[in-house]
Amino acid sequence: CSCRKTCINRVAQRPLHLRLQLFRTERRGWGIRCLDDIPKGQFICVYAGQLLTEQEANEDGKQFGDEYLAELDLIESIEQAKDGYESDVDIDIDHQSDISQSSGSDDSGEFSDISESKSLVPGQGHENKNDSSEKLSAHTLSSTAVRIIQKDDCQKKTRELYGPNEHCYVMDAKSTGNIGRYLNHCCKPNVFVQNIFVDTQDLRFPWVGFFAHVFIRAGTELTWDYSYQVDSVPDKKLFCHCGAKECRGRLL
């Protein structure tokens, strides 16, 4: 945005200012712990690395290992979260059309003057009905304003709008990256990921930012949930050693 660099909302664009320490864990390789208390919601750092296509990431993963690969799958994550969001909504198009015609709207699609409809004013005109199908709303649309969403429109994925053969881009931090690549997984993490947009509004290229999920005391290891799906990679098992009571036992 066009605000000044001193704006307090520019948390992810500032240099790292928290004191973090790289240390060797007992069973999970390198890890990161904080040397100062971190308040809940505090920005910690971003995940930096080399940007690869899905094909390049697969080739590099087979040759050099995939432990530092992170998919930029914001689009898929949001679509999965909203999957079935409107499954309980039942729209009766025929009934909607009848209501529109009775509300006095003409074929031009314009709304009639609701001030002339006494039925829209509580306690005047029509008496109250127990049947909800008889109630009129000031927000009732005319029949020409109703757009019937086709099934194919609902199933079209956002990423497909960018063109054919479009896949998630992958951040590879194995050889090029920052301290964010050493944050370990935990089934009950104290850090959460927030996708943010700074230099572009393109949904395919978010910045991956880490923020404190809870108040974190100095000396505590910083962890986040990798959200891997068990058995998603054929012939590969990765066991979890986070030590949390809620530990799921496996990452892959």
Rank of each mutant, 00 (worst) to 15 (best):
Q80F: 02
L16N: 00
L120P: 03
C168M: 11
W207V: 09
G249Q: 06
E166T: 15
D235C: 12
G84D: 04
S175Q: 15
G109N: 03
K245E: 15
I44H: 05
R248Q: 11
S117F: 02
S87F: 01
V214E: 12
F23D: 08
G249F: 07
L72D: 02
S175T: 13
K129C: 11
G65S: 09
A70G: 03
H213N: 14
V170C: 10
E160C: 08
I179C: 09
E59K: 14
V208Q: 11
I38A: 05
E127T: 06
S132D: 09
D202I: 05
C34T: 15
D60Q: 15
H185A: 04
Q50S: 12
S112M: 04
G125D: 06
E86I: 04
L161P: 00
I8W: 03
M171S: 14
I91F: 13
R250W: 08
K40V: 08
E116T: 12
Q42A: 14
K237P: 01
L18H: 03
Q63R: 14
V170L: 13
C168E: 13
W207P: 00
S108W: 08
H126L: 12
D94L: 03
N128F: 14
D172H: 15
T6G: 05
A12N: 03
G180I: 10
K62Y: 06
A173P: 12
C1I: 08
G109H: 06
C45Q: 02
R248V: 04
K236C: 13
A70V: 13
N165A: 13
R159L: 14
H241K: 11
D199L: 09
L251E: 00
Q42R: 15
E166I: 15
Y228A: 07
L141P: 03
L35G: 00
Q150M: 11
P234H: 09
E56W: 08
H213V: 01
N130Q: 10
S142W: 05
I149F: 04
D90Q: 01
R204A: 05
K188Q: 10
D153V: 13
A244S: 15
D231M: 05
V89H: 01
K62W: 07
C242E: 03
Q21L: 07
N58F: 11
R147G: 01
T144K: 14
Y47A: 08
H185F: 05
S97H: 08
T223E: 00
T220K: 02
H95E: 09
F239E: 12
C240I: 03
N178Q: 11
E134H: 10
D94W: 01
R14M: 03
G125Q: 01
E79P: 09
D37A: 09
E54T: 07
A57I: 10
Q201R: 08
S232E: 11
R28N: 10
F239P: 03
R27H: 04
C3P: 04
G41A: 12
C247G: 06
Q229I: 07
V146F: 09
A218F: 03
L51A: 10
E54P: 00
T158R: 04
G61L: 14
Q124S: 06
C7Q: 05
Q229F: 00
P122M: 09
